[in-house]
Simulated assay, not measured.
Amino acid sequence: QLRNPANVTMHRRHTTLREKGRRQAVRGPAYMFNERGSALTAEEERFLDAAEYGNIPVVRKMLEESKTLNFNCVDYMGQNALQLAVGNEHLEVTELLLKKDGLARIGDGLLLAISKGYVRIVEAILAHPAFGGGLRLALSTLEQEMRDDDFYAYDEDGTRFSHDITPIVLAAHCQEYEIVHILLTKGARIERPHDYFCKCSECVEKQKKDSFSHSRSRMNAYKALASAAYLSLSSEDPVLTALELSNELARLANIETEFKVRCPIGFSSFFSFFILY
């Protein structure tokens, strides 16, 4: 059966996810209960504390001089040094960490910076070679799960974001105009979801595998497309685009019940923006 290319791909996907699950098993709250997970060394504890509190000299010295430091270690909440530094808006520490080859969870760091509106940290992370060519900006965490790396945390403990979220979708949700502009200049765009009745292999597979996640991803995409930040910066005629989206969502509200309550929200804020400014 594995001779079928589709079966080979699915088998590889399941195998990869299973291995990632094993690798992530000692992360997050497991550190409080798992003997393996609780074995942070004194050096690692000191390093994570320094990153969390923005102790630049200590972080720099440990990164440059220590031969035994695992700079990707995580605390009992599943956060690594990069996530701790970004979450506490320590730009200098973030820049020091980004210089290290093999740094994990860069994608989670970017999403965290976007959610908090830390523009300078967003710019620093986007300057990392991992974002060369803009490919990473176009893919969600779910779409990148087949990559054998730790660019995103694949467990629920390490990330607080939905797995269908991309950086520009999150920036649009948060109405972060400056960050949306930065991402647009990097080539990031929000793809409009396929028609509800689309029968392409991708849509059929997503609907069959997890209809809830598929519906949620459509909601997140339309919410981002309808945001004032994205509409005003990405469209030559934002008002016309908003009206077209409004008509599309009104049609979808008769098909997908999830859109009945949510579809007017983005447009009301968008038109308020034009009335005020």
Rank of each mutant, 00 (worst) to 15 (best):
L112Q: 13
N220E: 14
L276E: 14
I190M: 04
A226V: 07
G134H: 07
L2Q: 11
R27V: 00
S227Q: 06
Q207A: 14
R22V: 01
A50H: 08
N88M: 07
K186A: 15
H173T: 05
M32P: 00
A138I: 00
L84E: 02
L243F: 12
R120D: 15
L96G: 03
E178H: 05
A6M: 06
F259D: 03
A221S: 15
N7W: 02
K208R: 13
V93W: 01
D157A: 15
A127Y: 02
R18A: 03
T141M: 14
E205G: 03
C73A: 15
M77V: 01
L231A: 12
G54R: 07
T241L: 06
R13I: 02
R136P: 00
E145Y: 01
A242W: 10
G87L: 04
L225S: 06
Q79N: 14
L98N: 07
L17Y: 02
N4C: 06
R251L: 09
H14Q: 09
K116E: 11
H173W: 12
K67E: 10
R36M: 05
Q24R: 14
G21A: 07
K223L: 13
C174I: 03
L139R: 12
S272K: 11
N4T: 03
R192Y: 00
V26E: 04
P129Y: 04
I168Q: 11
D101K: 15
S232R: 09
K61W: 03
N55K: 13
Y177K: 09
S201D: 15
P5F: 07
A130H: 11
V169A: 05
E156Q: 07
L231I: 12
T68I: 04
L126C: 11
A39Q: 15
E89C: 07
Y230Q: 11
V26K: 12
K20H: 08
V86E: 01
L139D: 00
T68K: 06
A127H: 10
E176Y: 01
K223Y: 08
Q24D: 05
G158H: 04
V204M: 14
S246W: 09
F33E: 06
I179E: 03
V180F: 09
G28E: 05
L63P: 02
M32A: 11
R12S: 07
C200H: 10
N34A: 05
R3L: 14
L2E: 12
R189E: 10
I168H: 10
I56C: 02
N220P: 00
K199L: 12
L111M: 15
Y277P: 00
D148N: 10
C200Q: 10
F197P: 00
L17I: 05
S213R: 12
M62S: 03
K61Q: 13
L98Q: 09
A39C: 10
V122F: 03
H14E: 09
T68G: 01
L233S: 12
D157H: 14
